[in-house]
């Protein structure tokens, strides 16, 4: 049901763009106004979300400790899994962000004949996630060719590398294929594995469908309907230099693609995709485990009035003396 709702939402988005451009001829709305609005929502939304997170206090020192913590000199510390310094935290964070190290140690539980409990490593999610994120990054960077003039040489090299198989013309780009396969895998995983389906919400399916349809519309434009790329670049360059005009003859598939991308951008600050900022702000990952070396002060601690022993003795010194209780100060 969640999946169907999300699918309907994405189809509705596609229909909005299709009808808006094809029937209502709102080219400048879908080609200029909507992308600008989406970019503004994206930037402001991400900033305010991160500032909101930044305002929440972290009362305890709660880094995840996945290995031996720093202890006596002859006990070997697991520096990446239990970092005690900032550099260790940065190392762990980099490996987490770039290689999804914690997913790599994912384990699956199963009951074997007997019945015996067995735990094994399961890396499919790690592999699918890694393929998805990296290919998405490559696709994103490749698109910069539409936003730069002249195009920097590094972008050309990336595209040559991406299309090194030289299949067909226009040459097949591997990142697109990998992205499509990875999104399909991540979707099928949610649908086919009952436990994962049980915990999947509409907010989990919607980005998958959205990204799937963005990738598909891009692939359709490049390999099948052959969009007027020169016209597209004239529009995109106009967008980034703030004097956008709508060129003639760009097919409606492009406007659908652009509208879906705008929808994704505007959706990011309100959704699980905010993990792109959230991963850096997770106290369990961005704190060093140095609670035995430095005192972590709870920021919402208010001054507590304590009655020290000294004060106690001052209050009751005479009574204590007369009762024969030893006192520290005469």
């Amino acid at each position: 049901m969640n999946a169907i709702l999300s699918l309907i939402a994405v189809i509705a988005l596609i229909l909005i763009a299709l009808l808006g451009v094809k029937t209502a001829n709102l080219h400048s709305l879908f080609g200029i106004a909507v992308p600008y609005a989406a970019m503004a929502i994206f930037l402001i939304g991400v900033i305010s979300r991160v500032l909101k997170w930044g305002r929440s206090p972290v009362p305890f020192c709660i880094p995840t400790t996945c290995g031996q913590q720093k202890s006596l000199p002859w006990i070997k510390q697991s520096k990446l899994d239990n970092p005690s310094t900032t550099s260790g935290v940065i190392g762990r964070m980099l490996l987490e962000v770039l290689l999804f190290r914690s997913l790599f140690s994912n384990t699956a539980f199963e009951l074997r004949n007997g019945p015996k409990v067995a735990y094994g490593s399961t890396r499919w999610l790690w592999l699918g996630g890694l393929a998805f994120h990296w290919s998405f990054l490559v696709v994103l960077i490749r698109h910069l060719r539409l936003f730069t003039e002249p195009v920097p040489a590094c972008l050309s090299s990336l595209e040559v590398l991406d299309g090194f198989l030289q299949i067909g013309a226009p040459g097949l780009l591997l990142s697109g294929v990998v992205l499509l396969l990875a999104v399909t895998y991540l979707f099928l995983r949610r649908v086919l594995i009952p436990e994962v389906r049980y915990i999947s919400l509409a907010a989990d399916y919607f980005p998958l469908f959205l990204i799937l349809s963005i990738a598909l519309s891009g692939i359709i434009m490049r390999y099948f309907t052959k969009v007027d790329i020169v016209g597209v670049k004239a529009l995109t360059l106009g967008l980034v230099s703030f004097n956008a005009v709508i060129p003639e003859g760009i097919s409606v598939v492009f406007y659908i693609h652009l509208f879906l991308v705008s929808a994704l951008l505007a959706y990011i600050p309100f959704s699980k995709i905010m993990h792109l900022g959230g991963v850096l702000l997770s106290p369990t990952r961005n704190m060093p485990n140095n609670s035995r070396m430095e005192r972590h002060i709870n920021p919402w601690n208010y001054p507590v009035h304590v009655h020290t022993y000294e004060e106690y003795e001052n209050d009751f010194r005479e009574k204590m003396k007369s009762a024969g209780i030893p006192v520290e100060k005469e």
């Binding site: 930037l43 930044g54 929440s56 206090p57 936003f147 730069t148 980034v240 230099s241 920021p299």
Partner: peptide
């Protein structure tokens, strides 16, 4: 704001990254 300097630096980096095409052109 806790760890304000780090967070603001990160946000400036993020906006700068997003603004590269605009500056470039």
């Amino acid at each position: 704001m806790y760890k304000g300097r780090k967070i603001i630096t990160g946000l400036i980096l993020f906006v700068g990254l997003a603004a590269i095409p605009f500056f470039y052109n």
